[in-house]
Simulated assay, not measured.
Amino acid sequence: MKRFFQPIQKDGSSKKPALSTQAENEEDERESGDDGHGKEPSKFLTWNANSLLLRAKNNWPEFSKLVATLDPDIIAIQEVRMPAAGSKGASKNQGELKDDTNASRDEKKVLMRALSSAPFGNYRVWWSLSDSKYAGTALLVKKCFKPKKISFSLDPAAKKHEPDGRLILAEFESLRFINTYVPNNGWKEEESSFIRRRKWDKKMLELILQLSDKPLIWCGDLNVSHEDIDVSHPEFFATAKMNGYIPPNKEDCGQPGFTMSERKRFGTMLREGKLIDAYRFLHKEKDMECGFSWSGNPVGKYRGKRMRIDYFLVSEKLKDRIVSCKMHGHGIELEGFCGSDHCPVSLELAPSSPDVKPNEASN
């Protein structure tokens, strides 16, 4: 969801940052002599940054403090909004940041300097980016953990990235982790909205079922509030419309993310994919102060209107290991949101039993 921001200020520093690339990730592994394959991450953080560059410029101390305190093994970022590498008119490299113009080089330096500072220097970074300053995801994994495989498509066998860089899938020895920025449903029945979202949900369910041989953690901005308890004002969101448009199918009516059609499909994914909503598993009651991950603009009709659209979903076989799942922002003034309109959400799992071998975790 969108929010107006201040203009980007010119960064005057000429210091060259350390750039985290796929090649440097591999070099780090060779130098460390530790492949990290047998280690299992147990602490996770997800955040829709609503422009990671703006957050690096304006809100990095706050976010850095949170990361240092929580010490997550994996950080999943959505809405990076940094363009993929590649000149105008040429094919893009969605795994690298654009740096072929003075402006893009300056922006890359600002962002990579932030990601090279403590505590982020302890992480490897993978990108999946859009062609323009839109959407995009990033995955930060502590260097002591080595994914067996990283992919970027709803088809795990495909080498290409999803359009707009909406997915990163990391496979570890005993589990898989998916970071997604799910497309917004939109307000009207058109190719860029309802239809696109239905296609995404169908393919996502197919992917979840394909990956059922190992426990799964799926997180990110999933752009849906499953139940009435997941929004601050159910009636407001259920009847919301833009420019007076009313979809012909009543199940498509309402605020994107709270239409009955989306909520039913989400329920199907949970049920058929045998997934648990970690936050709701621990928090059964509605919490008007801390129970929502997205908050409307403090000015205007959306003031105080909030939704829980950022999730950690885990395989049912992991539910007994859920220690905590917390939202780190609260209130209609967006305290703890680190400058975004989404707050960071964390998940912690208890360590797996030392008596269970990695290949037995999925049985």
Rank of each mutant, 00 (worst) to 15 (best):
A158Y: 02
A138Y: 10
A170C: 08
A157L: 15
D228C: 09
Y134D: 10
F194K: 05
E162Q: 11
L175C: 12
S193Y: 08
E206Q: 15
H161C: 03
N185V: 07
M204L: 11
R166V: 00
F177E: 00
I217S: 02
W126E: 03
T137Y: 01
Y123N: 05
F177Y: 05
S232T: 02
H233C: 06
L175P: 03
T180I: 08
L129Q: 04
F120M: 08
L205T: 01
P156H: 05
S232Q: 04
F172T: 11
S193M: 07
R196N: 12
Q210A: 13
S128R: 02
E227I: 08
N122Y: 11
A170P: 01
E162C: 07
K143Q: 13
V231L: 09
K160F: 12
G136P: 03
A157D: 13
E189C: 05
A170G: 05
T180L: 11
I208A: 07
D230R: 00
I229F: 03
K148D: 15
Y134P: 05
A158V: 03
Q210F: 11
W127L: 04
P163E: 11
L216Q: 04
G165N: 01
P163G: 10
A240T: 08
L140T: 00
L154M: 05
K149N: 11
E206K: 15
A157T: 15
N122P: 06
F152A: 02
P183V: 04
T239N: 14
L205I: 04
D155H: 08
C144V: 13
I229P: 01
P156G: 04
S225T: 09
L205N: 00
A138R: 12
V141T: 00
R198F: 10
D221E: 06
A170L: 04
F177H: 07
D131R: 08
T239G: 11
L139G: 02
E227Y: 09
E171H: 09
K214H: 13
S174M: 09
R196L: 14
F152Q: 01
L139I: 01
F152K: 03
S151W: 10
E162G: 06
I229R: 06
V141C: 04
E227N: 12
E189A: 14
I229S: 06
K148M: 10
P163F: 09
Y181I: 03
Q210D: 11
G136E: 00
R166C: 02
Y134Q: 10
K214I: 01
R198S: 12
E235M: 14
L169K: 02
